[in-house]
Design a protein around this nucleic acid. Structure first.
Length: 271
DNA sequence: CACTCTACCTGTGCGC
DNA sequence: TGCGCACAGGTAGAGT
């Protein structure tokens, strides 16, 4: 669900949209589901975050980093991962709290930042250094250059699909875009990295970039109207049994490492 | 190191 | 109509 393009879209709308989080102060906090906070303790989380001001917002992979400054000038980072079903809304405080609202930050001028998450998979951290969270992540999938990409790839023997989903290899790609990327560069999800030609590695890297850039530009995926915000047209994800838009063959669905995987058997031959 | 499985969670949609 | 169940998927952690 929210993968790199969707998370990027959330970041842009919260920071550059109207209203914006920029310069807003957190006056009070309602933590409605304490499991949302991973670190530190819920009590510390609330105490430290209270009366801080939003001074920056960055994305890395699928993580959001909100820079917050305390009254004494100390800077910390509120880190949020939306996981499967998390959503962030900047709304008027008077709007009804939804059934699955987990965390509310009440701000200036009657605004609230709300974190809704039906499945409670999403997490928030409050840390001094973003590195604490990103240290285990590979380079961001949107900006990784070919040199770095091919170097990392050359040291690994793995199937392509699990590799693209591995956030320690590159971060930001989830199940939807992994399938879309492999379809675009006509590589089978089970292909081993060690069998790739140089041409195929170049194609894989540029398709990762192309697909993500297009998806960011269209504000994320549009999957049979499920993600209403985005307009990125999926070619294979969720289209099993339908015709391939490139060759007309029937889109197949297989399991790769327990994950549903859609592909075109003609465009993405095993060998 | 590469992989597989399980847990976490709940709304949806299927078959009976 | 209603019940049970598989399914969806990002990540961590344990096990092979």
């Amino acid at each position: 669900m929210p993968e790199l393009p969707e998370v990027e879209s959330v970041a842009r709308s919260l920071w550059d949209g109207i209203p914006s989080l920029q310069g807003k102060t957190i006056h009070s906090i309602s933590l409605l589901s304490s499991t949302v906070v991973d670190k530190p303790s819920p009590e510390m989380f609330i105490n430290i975050l209270q009366n801080t001001m939003f001074i920056s917002l960055n994305r890395f992979g699928k993580y959001l980093f909100f820079g917050v400054k305390s009254l004494t000038g100390e800077i910390k980072y509120l880190v949020i991962h939306l996981r499967m079903t998390g959503r962030l809304h900047l709304v008027q405080q008077c709007e009804c709290v939804e059934q699955h609202t987990r965390l509310i930050l009440n701000l200036d001028s009657g605004l609230s930042l709300r974190f809704d998450d039906p499945r409670k998979f999403g997490r928030a951290w409050l840390v001094e250094n973003p590195e604490e969270v990103t240290v285990k992540l590979g380079p961001d999938a949107l900006t990784v250059d070919f040199e770095q990409f091919s170097n990392r790839l050359s040291r690994i023997k793995r199937q392509l699909k699990p590799l693209l989903l591995d956030q320690s290899f590159i971060s930001g790609i989830g199940n939807i875009y992994a399938d879309e990327i492999l379809f675009r560069c006509t590589l089978h999800p089970l292909r081993l990295t060690t069998t790739l030609t140089n041409t195929e590695i170049v194609a894989l890297h540029s398709c990762i970039h192309e697909v993500l850039v297009e998806a960011v530009a269209t504000k994320g995926a549009n999957i049979d109207g499920v993600f209403k915000a985005g307009k990125f047209p999926v070619a294979v994800y969720g289209r099993s049994g339908k015709a391939c838009q490139r060759c007309g063959a029937v889109i197949e669905k297989i399991k790769v490492g327990q994950r549903g995987t859609s592909l075109c058997p003609t465009c993405q031959p095993v060998n």
